[in-house]
């Protein structure tokens, strides 16, 4: 999907959100909806303007430069010696990032916070090949140990132990 089409989809989704808010506001009293309702209407108007201008003009030119400095010609920034560790297609790497967050949340719910921190960190280093297996386990262990000391020992927090915890208790 082109960037232009993606922007349109984003605007339509926003419109749906604002319409949903207006619909939900109907259940509130006059004082409770005094701000959300007009704001949702304003949101619809703004999104519609954005949608129209995105397709027929540009809203970027509405920006005001508060400190219009008479800028001299900026020197070209020399390209650094930069290596990128991964180069995948855009959609693959994007789905990878969503998947990573989803897996992390699922692991937290199933295994609990501390085991997840250890497994996720070690797994990430192993899968990306960033360091050797023993180093991955060492780094993950150090991170989990530090977090345990900080949150459980120092801050005395009761940690969430996960859905599997009853099986082990």
């Amino acid at each position: 999907m082109s960037r232009h089409a993606q922007e349109n989809v984003a605007s339509v989704l926003l419109l749906a959100v604002f319409i949903g808010i207006i619909w939900l506001c109907q259940d509130f009293g006059p004082r409770a909806r005094m701000i959300p309702l007009p704001l949702a209407v304003a949101g619809i108007v703004l999104t519609l303007i954005q949608l129209v201008w995105h397709n027929f003009g540009s809203t970027e030119e509405l920006q005001i430069d508060m400190i219009s400095v008479e800028a001299p010609e900026m020197p070209a920034v020399e390209a650094p010696l930069e290596r990128i560790t991964q180069k995948k297609s855009a959609w693959r790497s994007e789905s990878g990032a969503y998947g990573m967050v989803a897996i992390l949340v699922a692991m937290v719910f199933i295994l609990g916070l501390m085991p997840t921190a250890f497994l996720f960190t070690a797994g990430y280093f192993l899968l990306t090949g960033y360091c050797r297996p023993w180093q991955s386990l060492l780094y993950a262990g150090l991170l989990t140990g530090s977090m345990y000391l900080l949150f459980v020992v120092a801050l005395q927090m009761q940690m969430y132990h996960g859905l599997l915890a009853p099986l082990f208790s």
């Binding site: 959300p36 509405l62 005001i64």
Partner: peptide, 20 residues
């Protein structure tokens, strides 16, 4: 939104969403 970077409409929409 007016003086910040990027589209004015998008900036205002983001502000409205934040309030909601």
């Amino acid at each position: 939104a007016t003086f910040g970077e990027g589209s004015l409409m998008k900036g205002l929409t983001a502000s409205v969403l934040g309030v909601l």
